Simulated assay, not measured.
Amino acid sequence: MTGFARAEMGEGDRRWSWEIRSVNGRNLDLRLRLPPGCEALEPQLRQAVPERCRRGNISVQLDAARQGQPQSRYRVNRAALDQVIAAIKDVGLQIDAERPRLDGLLALPGVVERIEEEETEEAREARLALLLKGFGEALDGLVRMRAEEGARLARIALDQLSEVERLVGRARSLAAAQPEAQKARFRQQIGELLAQIPALSEDRLAQEFALLIAKSDVREELDRLAAHIDASRALVEAGGAIGRKLDFLCQELNREANTICSKSADLELTAVGLDLKAVVEQFREQVQNIE
């Protein structure tokens, strides 16, 4: 299921913003992008998302910014500078060269270090708690958006199930008339056959006709289709995490529709079976978007 949510928060001159995006996916795939210093949040995020979202490709991103430029402080790494000076003296005994300039020495990597702002443990815990609260707000927004989409998809799915049910009813009426039509065709074919070969016994004709009817009987498939429709409708109306169960029922609906097409000895019933397959496929595509 698709969705997007954003939440912003601030503390002093610092600002953070959460963005959560969700697109359709067969399973749950969670991706996190956190700025340095926020790695401690990852275990809690990975626990919170599956509790609210069961399927979908979900990406979570936290952006950090500061209002104005922070006042930076620097210090000279005396140990690194001493090593550089000692190396210069050693090389100067072997090579006649100009003395290095001060700005050149300070530009060497590691000689000048930036003093990072130290954060107390209390301040760190308060910052993480603030970020988790903001994440909870963003996750709530994502879940609401996905729920709204789910309600729309449920209406579409129920309409599609009603269409499948209508086609099953049409197939039943055609299947009920099929034995008589087959009997007429069978008698015609047998009449043509008997004109060329010795007569067959009535018992043998009855056996052959019974086998023909059994092979083309689709009543069991239609009964199973009706049961799968009822089960699918009950799941959609109940709501919740029903996507995987509906996936299975879609496979069963498609299996029965295929069998009807393969067993049908009537062009009109075959056409209804093909329509059934088309509507079931549309239903399956919608099910891929349901959690």
Rank of each mutant, 00 (worst) to 15 (best):
Q196C: 12
S232F: 07
A206M: 04
R101F: 12
M1Y: 13
W16R: 02
R54I: 12
D140F: 08
D223T: 08
L153N: 06
F4G: 02
R21L: 07
F283Q: 04
C53V: 14
A231I: 13
N258G: 01
V279T: 10
V143K: 11
V111S: 13
L235Q: 03
L158E: 00
T259H: 01
F209A: 00
A87W: 12
L235N: 00
E122M: 11
A231M: 14
A107V: 13
G10C: 05
R244P: 07
Y74E: 12
L269I: 04
G37S: 11
I213S: 10
L153C: 07
G243T: 03
A123M: 10
G239D: 06
F283P: 02
L267D: 06
L108S: 14
Q182K: 12
L212G: 03
S262P: 07
Q178M: 11
L139D: 04
A238H: 09
A206C: 03
V279Q: 00
E8G: 08
F248D: 12
Q178H: 10
A184W: 04
R255L: 07
D159G: 14
A227N: 06
G141F: 02
I95Y: 11
G110M: 13
S262E: 08
R124A: 07
A40I: 04
E11Q: 12
V272C: 08
E39D: 04
D140V: 14
L235V: 06
C261Y: 09
R101E: 14
L222T: 02
I85M: 08
D266H: 09
S162G: 06
D275K: 00
C53L: 02
A147L: 15
A257Y: 10
S162E: 15
E281C: 10
A278K: 12
H228P: 07
L246T: 03
P36V: 06
I20N: 06
R233N: 01
G37E: 10
A184H: 06
L194W: 12
Q251C: 15
Q44R: 14
L93T: 15
R14C: 08
P36E: 05
K133A: 15
A210F: 02
E8T: 05
K277Q: 00
K183G: 15
D96G: 13
R172A: 14
G56C: 09
L131S: 05
Q94N: 06
R255F: 03
V76D: 07
I115H: 07
E256K: 09
I58C: 03
C53Y: 05
Q94T: 14
Q207R: 02
A206E: 05
L246H: 00
I88S: 08
L108A: 12
Q61C: 05
E11R: 15
D63Y: 15
L139P: 01
L274C: 13
L34H: 00
Q251H: 11
K277N: 06
R54A: 13
N289T: 08
R99C: 13
L205R: 13
G56F: 01
A126C: 11
E291H: 13
A154C: 12
L193V: 11
Y74C: 02
E19I: 04
D275I: 03
A227H: 10
E137S: 04
I88P: 00
D90I: 13
G10K: 11
A171N: 09
E19D: 11
S173A: 10
W16A: 01
G110K: 08
A97C: 09
G134W: 12
